[in-house]
Simulated assay, not measured.
Amino acid sequence: MSVSGLCEVCQQPAVDHTCDRCGNLVCDRHFDAELGVCSECVAEIRGGDPSDPTGTSDDDMPDGVDTYEY
Rank of each mutant, 00 (worst) to 15 (best):
D28A: 02
G47I: 09
P50M: 06
V26G: 09
H30I: 09
L25S: 07
C10A: 12
C7Q: 09
P50V: 07
C27K: 00
H30G: 01
V42M: 15
P13N: 03
N24Y: 08
G55H: 02
H30K: 02
C7V: 12
E8P: 00
G5M: 00
E8L: 08
D32P: 00
V15N: 00
A33L: 14
D49W: 10
Q11M: 10
C10R: 09
D52W: 06
T18G: 02
E69Q: 06
D32T: 10
A43I: 14
D32F: 14
C41H: 11
R21T: 08
S4G: 05
P53L: 07
G55C: 02
F31W: 14
V42R: 15
C38H: 09
S39K: 14
V42C: 12
G47C: 08
E69G: 03
S2W: 06
V15H: 01
C38Q: 10
D60Y: 07
R46L: 13
E69L: 07
R29P: 00
Y70I: 02
V37S: 08
P13E: 02
C7I: 12
G48L: 05
D59R: 10
C10K: 08
S39G: 10
P13S: 04
V15T: 08
P53K: 11
M1L: 06
P13R: 04
P50K: 08
N24R: 15
E44Y: 09
G23C: 01
A43G: 11
E34C: 06
Y70G: 03
E40S: 14
D32Q: 15
G55R: 02
D28C: 03
L35K: 14
I45S: 08
G64R: 04
E44S: 13
D28I: 03
D16W: 01
G48N: 03
V9D: 00
C19Y: 03
D59M: 04
F31Q: 10
A14H: 07
G36M: 05
D59A: 11
C10V: 12
S4I: 12
D49L: 10
E34Q: 13
P50S: 05
T56F: 12
H17Y: 15
D20G: 12
G47P: 03
L35R: 15
C22H: 01
C22Y: 01
V65I: 13
G36E: 11
S39I: 14
G23L: 02
